[in-house]
Amino acid sequence: MNAKTADKVATVVICLFAGIIVLVLLGLLGFILFRGLSHISWDFLTSAPETIKAGGGIGPQLFNSLFLLVLTMLITIPLGLGAGIYMSQYAKPGKVTNSIRLVVEVLSSFPSIVVGLFGLLVFVNIMGIGFSLFSGALALTVFNLPLMVRITEQAMAGVPREQKEASLALGLSRWKTITSVMLPIAMPAIITGTILAAGRVFGEAAALLFTAGMSSPRLDFTDWNPLSPFSPLNPFRPAETLAVHIWKINSEGLAPDAGEIAAGASAVLVLTVLLFNFGARWFGRFMHRKFTATR
């Protein structure tokens, strides 16, 4: 086989693999949407679930998923950015930095069920926060932090040295250089990382079973006082997320339409993740344009 044929064969094989991946993805997506879309209605999205009757909705679960995402990100983003910037710009390479990096890597490879049990032990019981959104957010932070730190570190390290030197040579402090030159350049990569981290929040179930709980109190969507126990905004109430709800209803649902509800909820989950992804990407591009004056 000469070089030309080899090249052609390689091209065909690589295209084939790429095609297979796309097909699998489209197949999965199509299957989920095909089964679930017909079940989605305004009523389904907003009403509370029913235990034994048919016709329950997923309103509180959808809200819980979104709220948990916001809470988790509120904890993860500042911590992850701070640690990532420290690791890439301030820490001197050496034993301390390497051990921090090792801890971060180990953290990210923990099985989620273990993180869930850890959360149950530490956040729920020892710290006494109870089954709550806040415990869930802390447990998810354990997952997301490593990802966020690593992505920030890499994004900052990827900023061309010339850009950093140009700013320092103008007599600007390290901090001003980081905030006004390096972070804007690193922003798109950091936003992509944030999306990845956020995707895990939507999809995670195992770690939340033991931390955020498997039930929601009767939420009163007219009560927006975050301290009231029935307020949707109270971070210290138990909260079943969409992913946990899908798992629960599939394994122990008593309602006659449990299958359809699970299918509908899955479709909603997938669509939410997609919407969130596109939204975040658009936002990333928007910020990049704003900072860099490119069109």
């Binding site: 061309p160 010339e162 850009q163 030197e165 140009a166 040579a169 103008l170 860099t292 004056a293």
Partner: peptide, 20 residues
């Protein structure tokens, strides 16, 4: 920082910021 304000520098590769 005060020193670098007084002693400006131009580098080998043109390195404008990706700004306007």
């Amino acid at each position: 920082e005060t020193l670098r304000k007084k002693v400006g520098m131009v580098f080998q590769q043109p390195n404008p910021f990706p700004k306007s």
